[in-house]
Amino acid sequence: MLLLVGLLLVFGSTRSGGPLTQQDRIDSIAKNLACPTCSGESVYVSRAAAAESIRTEVARQVGSGIRSDDEIITFIEQRFGGQVLLVPRATGLDALVWALPAAALVISASFLVSVFARWNRNKPKAPTTQDEKLVNRALAQEATKQDD
């Protein structure tokens, strides 16, 4: 069954959803660019004038078909400065924003493993005779209750 699911997933994830249209390219570029006049919104989201003009520029570049998506982003970045990038680059201080979550993942995973290992070591051994007595007594009480 797992194999079947795996095969279906591989089939589904490798088949394509049709060719990218120009609009798809414009939108995906716009989603990676920050609107310079609004806090934290992308050019794709924002309705501000500055975002509108960047969208128009992106559409023009995509329409002319010369530059690739990355080149268009670099072009816009050079024209408007570093704060138009919505995805921090993985260099210098900015790399921390990627590294810290990865570190947090490793730390929390190893925490889980170690805590389970510790619990496994400290697991109570086989029940003592007194434990068994307690259980038997409880069972006996239960039985008499049901008889009533």
Binding site: G40, Q83, V84, L93, D94
Partner: peptide
């Protein structure tokens, strides 16, 4: 939390503005 406050940290430490948005 990190994605929200990271631009602040960068601005304090290096005095330059960055933005972090939905792709991240």
């Amino acid at each position: 939390l990190l994605g929200t406050v990271f631009p602040l940290i960068v601005e304090v430490l290096q005095d330059r503005q960055i933005a972090i948005g939905s792709p991240f």
